[in-house]
Nucleic acid binder design. Structure first.
Length: 153
DNA sequence: GCCAACGTTGGC
DNA sequence: GCCAACGTTGGC
């Protein structure tokens, strides 16, 4: 299947691009997704070697900060089984896990932030899921949108 | 901190 | 299955 493109949101003070950069092999587990629509993308469509924009949300400077690629496709999110975790889900079982994670490796930290405000000024990006549906933490990006955003750098 | 948009829960 | 009440996300 052809390579696909995604945008993953994170609150940088919880797990942002700096955390990924500091992780062994710049690789980390993308976990804690607790929204069905976002989960369905992760579980059913995100594939090995797909590329991902890392987006910082709910912070002073919101926007895209870099890229990563998928190094391990969907597997059960271990945090759902851990009562100590903020992401614990008592309704989830080992036999029927409800939530999934993927592993990603950092591939690029952008020299500057591409802010949400800047994205919104681009007529060619007006149909981005990011612009049309603000509340979705993992979302598809078209190949064309991917190219346009990289050319803004 | 405000609030719009959306998701989830639970009574009926 | 409907829908009101409530909770969360996320930009500003």
């Amino acid at each position: 299947m052809a390579k696909k493109y995604w945008l993953f949101k994170a609150e940088p003070h919880i797990y942002g691009i700096e955390h990924l950069a500091a992780a062994p092999n710049k690789t980390g587990r993308w976990d804690g997704i607790r929204n069905y629509q976002a989960r369905n993308f992760l579980r059913d469509q995100v594939a090995l070697n797909d590329e991902v924009f890392i987006y910082h949300s709910s912070c002073k400077n919101v926007g895209i900060v870099g890229t990563a690629k998928i190094v391990k496709p969907a597997y059960p999110d271990p945090t759902q089984f851990n009562p100590e975790s903020d992401y614990y889900d008592p309704k989830s079982t080992q036999e029927k896990p409800r939530w999934v994670s993927v592993d990603i490796t950092l591939t690029n930290i952008f020299p500057r932030l591409i802010s949400l405000a800047e994205i919104k000024t681009q007529p060619q990006l007006e149909n981005m899921v990011l612009v049309k549906q603000s509340r979705l933490s993992t979302q598809p990006v078209t190949e064309n949108e991917w190219k346009i955003i990289k050319e803004l750098l």
